[in-house]
Write a protein that binds this DNA or RNA. Structure first.
Length: 865
RNA sequence: GGACGAUUAGCUCAGCUGGGAGAGCGCCGCCUCGACAAGGCGGAGGUCGCUGGUUCGAGCCCAGCAUCGUCCACCA
């Protein structure tokens, strides 16, 4: 116990790594696969990218999940936090490709097999970082069963799902317009596309009519795509063009004949009201092309260059080069009638940041409509709860308007599609086909396809493993908002399709932590924050500098402080990062540490006796302890983490330390045995309540508690930790208010801090607390003493201050006058309210009565002055 | 273009079913009181974004507006 005696400061850096080791060695985080999912508790962690590092969102989400897992574990449930990482196709492949570039190599130089081998090696080297960071944070994941979305068994599950969906005709191959990402050289899904506002030049181009009589002018921001035009469209009701419908125009530079068609899609008010139709390179035109059975021409290839479907002089040009060349030729021919700048939304790849090139391409798709229906049902009938409610609505909106999902990616790192081709034959199966000449589809599946199986594939599905029986379905999924569609909705669909149950009963969507200036935290903006820098100390980015001072370094706040601070920020609203909250968490750990020192160094080391409250304050703290236990537990159950965190803070500061420990100090010094038992009980249960939020400091203190055995993390928390005693609550609440009133009076009456003031207690309800009040307010109560020089109102009466050297009469009088004025104003306010007939007639009787009682009480107080 | 959310003390945020606004930090004053100066005690500070409405009573309910943010969306 040496460090308890000598360290008046809690040192997380010295304690936390040691505690992590004890937890890991104990095997506590790896529950046996016994029992059933209802008695057990499980959470599947949102798998971080295998080569990722912990960011603030992970830290928040991990604090949330660990709080839930530890709470469940301490309620005696087998708690399993399923851990693993995601292979993160595009992100990881891009990392390795960049590294290869340093060597002057391209992935084609290595070939597929060698390249994939390189990625595995990369994963070996960098894959452990985020797991180590989770340990450092105190996350009680099942580290003994770490999963990876490319594990052999996981891959089998993925293939089986693909084949099953193919056989149900929910997966199909089609030539369709996709979002082509020239950066990753792959198709990507709608969800991986983001719209950005861009200023483009709108070109007005004259297309001569075949009849020779004039031209029809179209407007476009992408003149280069005109090389693939196959029609011109106008609105059917547009009077300007009625006579041209059905006519033919000649495509400049190419010479192709274009029919002028009528389609509702065209907005007459935009541009010229005539739209060039390019089914090969525009999603809308693609649809229009289908409606009118137009041809599709592809002039931009997957490499982003002009194909040989275009006139020879353009072939091989990049999109930008082609645009310039096309515009130049058009100008030479006098066909650009005008230009105009427009600001409009343009799709970009979230992955590579490059502008999306819509292309018609042969890809694998998943039909989502049928799968979405059950996923909608379970939310509507309450089998799946999503909170907050706004997220529930967003989820439903998305599913109700769902579109096919492009699931093939032209990458090498991922689950290769289990499809083989031979001539015109197609084979789909989990094992390669028999016979020669088969060639496997080179594409891999979208990473989110495999992530969609996460809660059950990690437990060994499709096999009926003990883990599946014990822990599936899981209890809650805690996640950030930005992957509800990408991930959560798809897990629900896949879970319902393949396991016939929702994969989790609750979805908790946590707050987004923003930068202090309200922007999103992101590396590129420099607004990110490294949680490890907060835990262990490290550079503080400029945007986090406080008070305009230099950026400098974060102090080593420790994991508990970071966890508590993040939980306190997790109120359901998005919040700006607040270093102060982390600092507040650190103060809480320090406070708890020192309160524990007072108790543990003050009581005898002897065996623990049964708890027998000997004084009113003992009955009070046991009541408050029980209420804190209930309230904090309920708040965690309701995912109200900020309220749970603040509730803990309030209990530790506002009840335990500021009042209870101050009240019992004389008894503690006297070595009262009953008190020792109560103190140890209160300390132990406080640690237990606090543990899910601040596990390290509580575990450390627990190791010093006499009679405490094993790990606090493994302790089962009793339901009842104290008897509710309303009488004691009332007595202490009066005493506390009285002491605060008396201290305020002393302060404004300029009584010296150390001076003891003579006073007479003229109030009821202080039979058990008068002595304590006298000590804490530094009064000496006496029965005689004559005329009071001041009267301080307290609940149930007043404390009359008697003449003594300690009291400055003038100051006392000033104080008394101020109090009278304040009371007078309050009485007047209340009386005005009571004089309002409407209030008396229509307000609930108890409200009116309360107001009357208030006036009566204020009057008594005024009189006593 | 739609949808949702936010606007409360200098800052970051609470405020659950309407009954005269709270916390932390910061600020001011006092205090080496036998756990803790990363502390204790006391205090100042708010037209609850704006305008209307409902109500005896509105930070809370309704309508409109403003500003900020997020998400969704195929207008060249």
């Amino acid at each position: 116990m040496a460090d308890l005696e000598s360290n008046s400061r809690y040192e997380p850096a010295a304690v936390e790594p040691r505690i992590v080791e004890r937890w890991l060695e104990s095997g506590l985080f790896h529950p046996e696969a016994d029992g059933d999912p209802r008695e057990n508790y499980s959470i599947a962690i949102p798998p971080p990218n295998v080569t990722g590092v912990l960011h603030i969102g992970h830290a928040l989400n991990s604090s949330v999940q660990d709080c839930l897992i530890r709470s469940a574990r301490m309620r005696g449930r087998r708690a399993k936090w399923i851990l693993g990482t995601d292979h993160a196709g595009i992100a990881t492949q891009t990392q390795v490709e960049r590294a290869l570039e340093q060597e002057g190599l391209h992935r084609e130089d290595l070939g597929r097999e060698a390249f994939v081998q390189r990625v595995w090696e990369w994963r070996e080297r960098y894959g452990g970082t985020i797991i180590d960071q989770l340990k450092r944070l105190g996350a009680s994941c099942d580290y003994e069963q770490e999963r990876f979305t490319l594990d052999e068994r996981y891959a089998e599950a993925v293939q089986q799902v693909f084949v099953a969906l193919y056989n149900k005709k929910l997966i199909y191959r089609d030539r369709y317009m996709v979002n082509w990402d020239p950066g990753s050289r792959s198709a990507i899904s709608d969800l991986e596309v983001e719209e950005r506002e861009v200023t483009d030049v709108l070109y007005y181009i004259d297309y001569p009519l075949a009849s020779g009589s004039g031209a029809i002018t179209v407007a476009t921001v992408r003149p280069e795509t005109m090389l693939a035009d196959t029609a011109i469209a106008v609105h059917p009701d547009d009077e300007r063009y009625q006579r041209l419908i059905g006519e033919t125009a000649i495509l400049p530079l190419v010479g192709r004949k274009l029919k002028i068609i009528a389609d509702d899609y065209v907005k007459p008010e935009f541009g010229t009201g005539a739209l060039k139709i390019t089914p090969g390179h525009d999603p809308n035109d693609f649809e229009i092309g289908h409606r009118h059975k137009l041809g599709q021409i592809t002039v931009i290839g997957e490499d982003g260059r002009i194909t040989d479907s275009a006139p020879e002089r353009f072939v091989g040009m990049s999109v930008i080069e082609a645009r310039e060349a096309v515009v130049e030729e058009l100008r030479e021919q006098g066909l650009v009638s005008r230009t105009q700048e427009v600001v409009h939304a343009v799709p970009f790849s979230q992955r590579s940041g490059e502008r999306i090139e819509p292309l018609v391409s042969l890809q694998w798709f998943m039909r989502m409509h049928e799968l979405a229906q059950p996923a909608i049902e379970v939310v509507k009938d309450g089998r799946l709860r999503i909170r907050p409610d706004s997220e529930r609505r967003r989820y439903l909106d998305w599913l109700e308007n769902i579109r096919p999902w492009c699931i093939s990616r032209q990458l090498w790192w991922g689950h290769q599609i289990p499809v083989w081709y031979r001539g015109s034959e197609t084979y789909v199966g989990t094992a390669p086909p028999q016979g020669d000449g088969w060639e496997r589809d080179p594409d891999v599946l979208d990473t989110w396809f495999s992530s969609a199986l996460w809660p059950f594939a990690t437990l060994g599905w499709p096999n009926a493993t003990p883990e599946m029986r014990a822990f599936y379905p899981t209890d809650v999924l805690s996640t950030a908002r930005d992957i509800i569609f990408l991930w959560v909705a798809r897990m629900v669909m896949m879970g319902l399709e393949f396991t016939e149950t929702v994969p989790f009963a609750d979805v908790y969507v946590h707050s987004i932590i923003q930068a202090p200036d309200g922007r999103r935290m992101s590396k590129s903006l420099g607004t990110g924050i490294d949680p490890m820098a907060l835990i262990e100390g490290g550079p503080r980015p400029p945007v986090f500098a406080q008070g305009g001072g230099s950026a400098g370094e974060f102090p080593a706040y420790g994991a508990d402080a970071v966890r508590w601070g993040l939980l306190a920020m997790a109120s359901g609203q998005d919040v700006r990062f607040s270093e102060d909250k982390v600092a507040q968490g650190q103060q809480l750990t320090n406070k708890l540490w020192n309160a524990s020192r007072l108790i543990l160094l003050g009581v005898d080391d002897g065996a623990r006796a049964a708890v027998r409250p000997a004084a009113v304050e003992d009955r009070w703290i046991l009541t408050r302890l029980q209420r804190a236990r209930e309230e904090i537990g309920e708040r965690i159950d309701r995912y109200e983490f900020s309220r749970a965190a603040l509730g803990l803070y309030d209990f530790v500061y506002g009840e335990l330390c500021d009042w209870y420990l101050e009240l019992v100090k004389p008894r503690l010094r006297a070595g009262e045995p009953e008190l020792a038992a109560t103190l140890l009980h209160v300390l132990t249960e406080t640690l237990t309540i606090a543990h899910p939020m601040i596990p390290f400091v509580t575990e450390e203190i627990y190791s010093h508690v006499p009679g405490a055995e094993g790990l606090l993390a493994a302790r089962t928390a009793p339901e009842r930790v104290g008897e509710i005693d309303p009488e004691a609550e009332g007595a202490l609440s009066r005493a506390i208010e009285a002491v605060q009133g008396l201290r305020a009076w002393r302060d404004s009456a300029e009584v010296k801090v150390g001076a003891t003031v003579s006073a007479r207690l003229a109030a009821d309800g202080y039979e058990e607390t008068a002595e304590q009040i006298a000590r804490l307010a530094r009064l000496a109560f006496s029965e005689n003493g004559g005329e009071p020089v001041a009267s301080v109102p307290v609940p149930g009466g007043a404390v009359e201050i008697l003449r003594s050297d300690a009291v400055d009469l003038d100051a006392a009088e000033r104080k008394r006058a101020a109090a009278r004025a304040k009371l007078g104003a309050e009485i007047e306010r209340s009386e005005r309210k009571l004089a309002n007939d409407g209030f008396v007639a229509k307000a609930p009787p108890e409200v009116v009565q309360a107001e009357r009682d208030k006036v009566a009480r204020l009057r008594r107080e005024l009189e006593s002055l």
